[in-house]
Simulated scan of single mutants.
Amino acid sequence: MQTKFTNSKVLNLALASASALLFLVPTLSAIALTGNSNNSEKNISQIRDSFLVAQANCPTRRSRVDRTFETPNYYVTICSGDSQNSLGYYVGAAKDGSGGITVPLTRRSGDRYIAANGNTIYAVTPYELRVSRNGRTILNERILAVSGDDTFSARGCRNRESTFVTAETANYIVSICGGDLPGTYIGESKNGSGRIRLPLRNYGRDRFVAVNGDTRYILTRNELRVTQNGRTILRETVRNWN
C-alpha cells in the first residue's frame, strides 16, 4: 500500500482551502505512521504520539459518515463503503491538529470497526479506541462520545436515562442506569462481541447485583464477578470507576 506524508503546516493550509483539503484526503492509501527505523521502541513511541496524520474526512463523494467517536485526544469517523471498498473506511484525526489517517476497514462486527495498515491495527467500539502493532497495544483511549447511535450513549445507558456508575475492567464496560434511582445493569464486552441489559435485583453502597436465570452479575468498586449456580465463572478487577 502506497503511503503519503503530510505535516501540520500542510494540514493548516488544508483547513483554509477546500481544494487543498480534497487533494490531501486519500482514497485507498493509508497515511504512513512512521518512517523506517531500526529501533522498534522508537517506532512505537512515534506511533503513540502521532499515529494519525491526515484529515478526518470521508475519502470519496459516495461514502457518507456512518458514525463518529471521540476520545480525549482523537476523533474517529466511520465512513460507509463505496465501489472501491465495500466495508467502508476508518478516518481519524488528532484534536491538536497534528494530523490524521484514512484506512479501508477490514472488518465490521456489530459496534466494532477494524482497519489495518500493514502490521498496525486500529479497532474502535463505543467504549474504546485501541491501536496495536505486531500484537502489542500502543494506544488505548476511552470513548467520550458517539454519534450516529440514537439508542445508546457511549456509556451504555439510553439517552434519556441517568448514568449512576460506569466501571471498566480488562475486558468489559459495565453501566448502572436508571431514573431517579439505579434500576438497570448493562454490561458489554470491549471487543463488541456481546451486550446484556438486566434489571437490578438489589443494590447498596457501591454494590450492584443483577440476575439472569442461574447467572448472577455482581459489580463493586473492586471487581466484576459473574457466578452461575453459585460457581464463579468470571472475576475481573475494576480499573476505572466513574
Rank of each mutant, 00 (worst) to 15 (best):
A116P: 00
E141F: 07
T220R: 05
P59C: 09
L13N: 10
P104V: 13
N202A: 10
K42G: 03
D206T: 08
G100A: 09
G135H: 05
A94P: 00
R225M: 13
K9Y: 15
S40I: 13
N242F: 04
T151W: 06
R205C: 05
Q2R: 00
G230C: 03
G35T: 12
A145N: 13
D150A: 12
R64C: 07
T102E: 10
Y172F: 11
L105K: 04
D111G: 06
A154M: 08
L198T: 02
L13M: 13
N202G: 08
Q84N: 11
N43L: 14
L219R: 02
E41M: 08
I233L: 06
I176Y: 04
R67Y: 15
L200Y: 06
I44C: 01
A167M: 05
T3S: 01
S147A: 12
V65C: 03
V146D: 06
A115R: 04
L87E: 07
S80A: 06
K190A: 00
R48N: 15
R207C: 07
R231N: 07
Y89T: 01
L33I: 08
Y89S: 02
Y75F: 14
N43R: 13
Q84C: 01
F164Q: 07
T137H: 04
D149L: 06
D180S: 14
Q55T: 13
T169W: 08
N117K: 03
V76L: 10
T3H: 03
D149C: 05
V211N: 02
W241R: 04
N85H: 13
A20E: 10
G230T: 03
S98Q: 12
T125Q: 04
A115Y: 04
D180Y: 09
L13E: 15
N57S: 13
L11G: 08
L24R: 00
V124Q: 07
P26Q: 11
R158E: 14
T68I: 14
P182W: 09
G110W: 15
D49E: 15
V211F: 02
G204V: 10
A32Y: 05
R201F: 10
N171G: 01
T27P: 00
I218R: 06
S17A: 08
R158I: 03
E41S: 12
P26V: 03
R155F: 12
Y172N: 05
V146K: 08
I44N: 12
G88V: 04
A116D: 14
G156M: 02
T151E: 13
R64F: 15
R195V: 07
